[in-house]
Design a protein around this nucleic acid. Structure first.
Length: 330
DNA sequence: AACCAGAACAACCGCGGTTCG
DNA sequence: CCGAACCGCGGTTGTTCTGGT
């Protein structure tokens, strides 16, 4: 049974918004608010638009204090680190970037950062570093080996973003220590475990056994319950990020933090950056391991523009990030 | 100057989760 | 408890812009 369409597609206008439509929507919302019902909103205003379209337009474009373009190195760093940690949870990532929307972040990642990070590997490949695990986006095949696919086609349950994160993680780790990836039990187990967890990802009350894996890594229940991270995502985030999951993985995180700088800004680039070398994930030993030299961008945020003051940093997201900071021992 | 390819951005689509009657 | 309506999110597509030839 299909879902009923949210609006009559024959009568609603599609495509780019005109300045007049923008003005109508903006004026109405500023005067009356959304009224809690986006579907009814266009009818009240007299717009021939789908309610979803109105909502999107408001959130991504018309809302006050929206920033467009010119992502700073700090923002780059936040996006990359969070993406590696939690995957394509653009709304959560965007919540850490004042004035940025999830759509903006997503576009920025897809068009720039991803290419900068993943694309760079190919350059390296030609430049003398030749590694065992070919982990570029193109190279990771359905039947790929290197321990990532555990016999029975584990890749079936891995999303593209998950694969991407594996690639990034492997790539970064290899840069740090070409041998380490093959000795990381969590990474080598991950596909099969993720498959198991993924099958139960929606049952947060019954899949206690799968949650054990999460609990072992210290993931809080509120993240799991409130934000529906799949077992796969939790697993990857926890495996890569949790300091409690073992020193080896902490090393991975440290490697990621360090190598992000190299990947993003080139060799020695971190030297010249005022900040951005910090870590969302302070894997370096339980909170003491603040990155020396560079300003960690969490401190930067807290000192100058705390997430709490973000324009869309709601109490809910605040609590979520409380969880993250707890989990990741930030 | 014209054309083309790739990049960047805006918007749409469909799905899962939540709420409410 | 169930189903419909709604919300929010992530993925994808379409359009516009920009740089190169």
């Amino acid at each position: 049974m299909g879902r009923a369409p949210c609006c009559d597609k024959a009568t609603v206008k599609k495509g780019p918004w005109s300045p007049e439509e923008d003005a109508m929507l903006k004026n109405y919302i500023e005067e009356h608010g959304t009224g809690g019902n986006w579907i009814a909103l266009p009818h009240k205003i007299g717009l021939k638009r789908c309610g979803k379209s109105c909502r999107l337009r408001w959130l991504n474009y018309l809302r006050p204090n929206i920033k467009h373009g010119d992502f700073t190195p700090e923002e780059d760093s936040i996006i990359c680190s969070l993406y590696i940690s939690i995957g394509s949870r653009w709304s959560i990532i965007a919540a850490q970037l004042p004035g940025r929307t999830d759509n903006d972040v997503k576009n920025y990642w897809n068009t720039k950062l991803k290419k900068r990070l993943l694309g760079r590997r190919k350059d390296r490949g030609g430049g003398g570093h030749h590694h065992r695990s070919q982990s570029t986006a193109d190279d990771l095949p359905a039947g790929g080996d290197g321990g990532m696919n555990d016999g029975g086609g584990g890749e079936r349950s891995l999303s593209a973003s998950a694969m991407e994160r594996i690639q990034l993680c492997m790539q970064l780790q290899e840069l740090q220590n070409p041998l380490a990836i093959h000795h990381n039990p969590l990474l080598s187990q991950w596909p099969s475990k993720a498959t198991t967890d993924h099958n139960h990802s929606n049952s947060n009350s019954n899949s206690s056994m799968n949650n054990v894996t999460v609990a072992e890594h210290g993931m809080s229940s509120s993240i799991r319950d409130n934000h529906h991270l799949s077992g796969q995502q939790l697993e990857s985030a926890a495996a890569m990020a949790s300091p409690s999951s073992g020193g080896e993985n902490s090393n991975v995180v440290v490697a990621i933090e360090a190598e992000l700088q190299e990947l993003l800004y080139g060799g020695g680039g971190s030297q010249g950056r005022a900040s951005g070398g910090g870590a969302i994930i302070d894997g370096g030993g339980g909170g003491d391991g603040a990155p020396q030299g560079d300003v960690d961008w969490w401190s930067y945020d807290q000192g100058k523009q705390s997430p709490v003051t973000c324009w869309d940093f709601t109490p809910e997201t605040s609590s979520i990030f409380q969880d993250y900071t707890t989990v990741y021992d930030i």
